[in-house]
Amino acid sequence: MSSQSPLAPGALLARGVARHLRSLDFMSVPEVTLPGRLRVDLMALGPKGEIWVVECKSSRADFMADGKWQGYLEWADRFFWAVDADFPIDLLPDNSGLIMADGYGAEILRMPDATPLAAARRKSVTLRFARVAAARHQGMCDAGITWGA
């Protein structure tokens, strides 16, 4: 990994995770804002409509400073932590997923149990995912307009 990368450590992890999830036929969007002022690092939508949330932690301090992660659980069928090889994984809860990543790829080391979303919540999250992805795509196509989301 080049030290000249413009991406922050968490964004590098998210990129590697997104690449791996794509190989599993999951499409992902970084930094999705949810109700309650929550913002997940990476949200992924699977081929059967499953919703995965991934929180990327680049250090012990980054993990210890995150007091909101339990609020993410109600917005996903599965919740994962993504960390690099130097992260002290004994800090992470055993019942959550674990992804080892770097800026180029990732591997799922621990698959969490599924906690399926209720139909109304799934629809809400899927619409949010689609609208955020579409707004960002439009923003890339028309850089002169701020699209929000």
Rank of each mutant, 00 (worst) to 15 (best):
L24Y: 06
G10L: 02
A130E: 06
K48C: 12
Q138W: 13
S23P: 05
G49C: 11
G10T: 02
M111A: 08
P116R: 15
L7S: 01
A135L: 04
A82R: 07
P88I: 02
R19W: 01
M43Q: 02
A118G: 15
M140W: 07
M64Y: 05
L24T: 03
L73F: 13
K123G: 00
F87N: 09
C56W: 02
V17D: 08
G36R: 04
I51G: 04
T146L: 13
G10E: 13
V54C: 07
H20S: 08
P88E: 00
L42K: 04
R39L: 13
S28N: 03
A14F: 06
P6Y: 04
R19S: 04
S58W: 09
L38A: 01
G139R: 10
R131N: 11
G46H: 00
F87G: 06
V32E: 00
Q70M: 12
F80N: 10
L109M: 14
A106N: 04
D66H: 05
R131T: 11
D142W: 11
R37W: 03
S5N: 15
A11S: 10
P47H: 12
M64D: 03
K57F: 04
M100K: 13
A118H: 05
A11G: 02
A18M: 10
P116Q: 08
G49H: 06
F87I: 03
C141K: 12
C141S: 14
